[in-house]
Design a protein around this nucleic acid. Structure first.
Lengths: 332, 332
DNA sequence: ATGAAAGCGCTAACAT
DNA sequence: ATGTTAGCGCTTTCAT
């Protein structure tokens, strides 16, 4: 029906445009990219030719010449986690404003995949990659020798050898737990990942200690809805049931919530919850979750800026703070 | 500390590898891409040189030469909708298996953005784009003249002028509503988008008509959690409250659920719900939602295959069927 | 089995 | 103000 071009057999190059406009190829470049000044009439003819031919510059050629594909990547552990979905969107929005496209890569929680992905991205000539999935300090050297510029995103604390941006999880968990303490709960549990250096765990401990409270039970489970459900059931089965719990992410919290509902527990009546991240689903669970919101938009934008416009002496860590969003699950 | 390479100043080219290995550039290509046979000893020297130098081929140059960047894109209305997040992941997984990377683009529900995005993707030399956001038939011609191969994903019915894959929404909504009918509910409402040609609306109508039931109230609202909440509140305020409701997506349904909880309605006791999509959050809402699950993995993989390996005479529409996942919200 | 060389489409320095 | 031209790093045909 349409006779413009078949199934993707485009061949219109800058040269065709030049011929049609009756100028040299350079003038086409000048017109399009704003190089040396071009006579208004000529520029208009060029633009007309571009329109007529439906010309779009070949980004591969441009990237080869310029050494930049105006492309960045972000590696996340799991893009189906609404928190990371929101983070990716923030990154994408910030990048688009600068004319960069974003490649989203799912590491699926496997730390050993990060380096291979980084290398494959390097070969794609990405201008930089944001790593939002957890890494080991021992990986830094290998990442640095991959040849791509990279920055840690979603990093709780500084890490030697690279830039990083993220929320202070210790402080965030402390604030969230302290809120529970303020409500007067005495036996406050922890649900999170089984990592000895989990900063949220440390924050929870710190808040309890500061209040002179004994540490409640800590239940470790995978970082997923299923993991939250399992942890919630475990908590429900405890001989002495806690009267409140800090959950390490909203995604886990919806699983925990389900376990509590199944056990016919009133929330916050029988047990109060405060969770973490502030992703959209926390507002629409039942009851709505009091949660420590991470400023994903600001963090994403900051990381993109850092990657694209690296400040000369830029080093170290950009620390963000969360904000406790009060809803029903804590008993307020 | 690490002295391998600074902030991304890589310069290792195929030529360096050739020099170090004492061969010509062609042999490096042959070794890496499996062209004409290379003597085992030579190949080994080349591979060693690659390792030593940390050489990664320049994808831009390769793309320029080959005319393919091994890159596809997917345009979705909203990647924070878990259904689309899952769809994107399915696409990404399928694409990665073929060595393609995926660019995810958010059209943010604005149909007029699709064409500009398509053009910007065309200039990036993507090998194809999957459009999963709704389009108007009138846009097809313009898309076809963009020069990029494209396929509709998440399309309910055939569309003239292009390939498409998706679930039959009329049939899906019919099945979901019929399930409610089977439960004996008499006054079954609809919540969805205000589009006259909404196939889910048509399916709901069809199921009711087939059962000899009058159409219940239809409430139209934006396709979001907020939209669902507003619609739910509207429904609650109705003089004659329906005893069941079909909701067009899980994301809207969590909003509806919240409205019902706020009104202290028992689900499914006071009002039953069946929703649509089968995204992860439907399993973790309270109560868990009975929902028509879309086979996102199969659809994503099929669309990718269609884009990457277009069958010669391939035309028309790949129709998928959903599966009703029975949980609590319907009264089962 | 290996090498030389053309050329993919573009930008930018240099010439006019 | 506009044209010429040298590469960017790669694949691949054609020689050897």
């Amino acid at each position: 029906m349409t006779k413009t071009s078949g199934t993707g057999a485009r061949k219109v190059t800058r040269k065709d445009v030049a011929r049609l406009a009756g100028v040299s190829d350079a003038v086409v470049s000048y017109t399009l990219n704003g190089g040396p000044p071009v006579a208004p009439a000529t520029a208009e003819r060029v633009r007309e030719a571009v329109r007529l031919l439906g010309y779009t510059p070949n980004a591969s050629a441009r990237a080869l010449k310029l050494g930049s594909a105006r492309l960045i990547a972000v590696i996340v552990p799991d893009s189906s986690n609404p928190f990371f979905a929101a983070l990716c969107q923030a990154v994408e929005d910030a990048a688009r404003l600068e004319g960069y496209a974003v490649l989203v890569v799912n590491a699926e929680g496997d730390r050993s995949r990060t380096l291979p992905y980084l290398q494959s991205l390097a070969s794609r000539q990405v201008d930089g990659v944001l790593i939002a999935s957890p890494i080991d300090e021992s990986q830094v050297a290998a990442f640095n020798s991959s040849g791509v510029r990279w920055t840690m995103l979603n990093r709780s604390a500084p890490i030697a050898g690279t830039l990083s941006v993220g929320l202070d999880l210790i402080e965030g968990a402390r604030v969230a737990t302290a809120h529970l303490v303020g409500h007067g709960y005495q036996n406050i549990a922890f649900i999170g990942q089984a990592r000895p250096d989990d900063h949220r765990y440390m924050g929870w401990r710190a808040a309890l200690k500061a209040a002179g409270l004994d540490a409640g039970p800590a239940i470790f489970s995978p970082f997923s809805r299923e993991g939250g459900l399992a942890a919630g059931r475990e908590l429900v089965a405890l001989r002495i049931r806690p009267d409140a719990v800090f959950v390490s992410s909203d995604m886990m919290a919806v699983g925990v919530l389900r376990a509590f509902h199944e056990a016919d527990l009133a929330i916050p009546g029988d047990i109060a919850i405060v969770s973490f991240d502030g992703s959209p689903e926390s507002e629409y669970s039942w009851p709505p979750l009091t949660t420590l919101r991470q400023p994903v938009d600001a963090m994403g934008a900051d990381a993109v800026a850092q990657l694209i416009h690296p400040e000369p002496g830029s080093q170290g860590h950009h620390r963000f703070e969360g904000e406790l969003v009060i809803r029903r699950s804590c008993g307020c």
